[in-house]
Design a protein around this nucleic acid. Structure first.
Length: 240
DNA sequence: AATTAGTCCAACCGCGCGCAT
DNA sequence: CATGCGCGCGGTTGGACTAAT
């Protein structure tokens, strides 16, 4: 059992005050990002490290582009979601200045509905006629519903079991089948190519040739967030 | 004008991964 | 190899705000 992220000592919760923001900004300006666990004390903040990190990444970072999403951005989010599912951080990596949280919120409040209005199932981007009633606020979900706490990332597309893309299936978990489905059916104009990066652990377990694990090395600048090292983790790379 | 219903978004929570020890 | 820590991710929630009645 792990310790909670913040000891039970007194920490502020809820909305950040201007003073707290300033303290955080000043501290990161002089010391840089990282060491989130020790940052609050060092910066004189009564917040947990997680909270500081979130506040910085989602709100205070100077390179954030705030304001309405453009049509191009909307379009890209929809296409990337069709490909990647709810991997908001990966999607955010393709939208400079936007955060995963922002995109997630925008998806849930606007784009899901937009897709439904177009007659598409927002879960799998296929034409569908049976959607959950999303106008209902706060559908009560049991613990761990909708895959909370699970990670479907880093799954070799070929090794992964094929989801049936049932409308009741809340998550899209298979990039390859998404691409296949999407390119063929829903978004034929999307010019994305998909690569699964060398997988250190799984090829042995994969019964297929390992060829499908490797496409090509990334060009400089292609790797953005979440892709720390081309050999360390099997990660989706998108080239447009 | 008051009340209710719906929307939006910042923030929280729990969990898994990678790394150091 | 096992364990613990730090971090990042995705899902969920609280509450302010707005629109509808």
């Amino acid at each position: 059992m792990r310790n909670p992220c913040c000891e039970k000592q007194e920490t502020n919760k809820g909305a950040w005050s201007k003073q707290e923001d300033e303290k955080l900004i000043n501290y990161i300006r002089t010391h840089g990002e990282g060491r989130w666990r020790t940052l609050p004390q060092a910066a004189g903040l009564l917040r947990c490290g997680k909270s500081c990190r979130l506040r910085w990444i989602n709100y205070l970072r100077p390179d954030l582009k705030r304001g309405k999403f453009t049509e191009d951005e909307e379009d890209l989010i929809i296409k990337l979601h069709a490909l990647l599912g709810n991997r908001w951080s990966l999607i955010a990596g393709r939208l400079p200045g936007r955060t995963d949280n922002e995109i997630k919120n925008y998806w849930n409040s606007h784009l899901r509905r937009k897709l439904m209005d177009m007659g598409l199932d927002p879960n799998n981007h296929r034409l569908g006629n049976r959607f959950p009633n999303l106008t209902k606020r706060r559908p009560h979900s049991p613990p761990n519903a909708a895959g909370q706490g699970t990670r479907s990332m880093h799954v070799c597309a070929h090794c992964a079991p094929r989801p049936d893309h049932d409308a009741s299936d809340d998550r899209v978990t298979d990039e390859a089948s998404c691409l296949e489905d999407m390119n063929v059916r829903a978004l034929p104009d999307l010019n994305l190519s998909l690569s699964i990066w060398p997988q250190l652990s799984s090829p042995a377990a994969c019964t297929e040739s390992t060829d499908h694990h490797v496409r090509r090395p990334p060009e400089a600048g292609e790797l953005k967030r979440n892709i720390p090292d081309e050999t360390s983790s099997p990660t989706l790379l998108l080239f447009r």
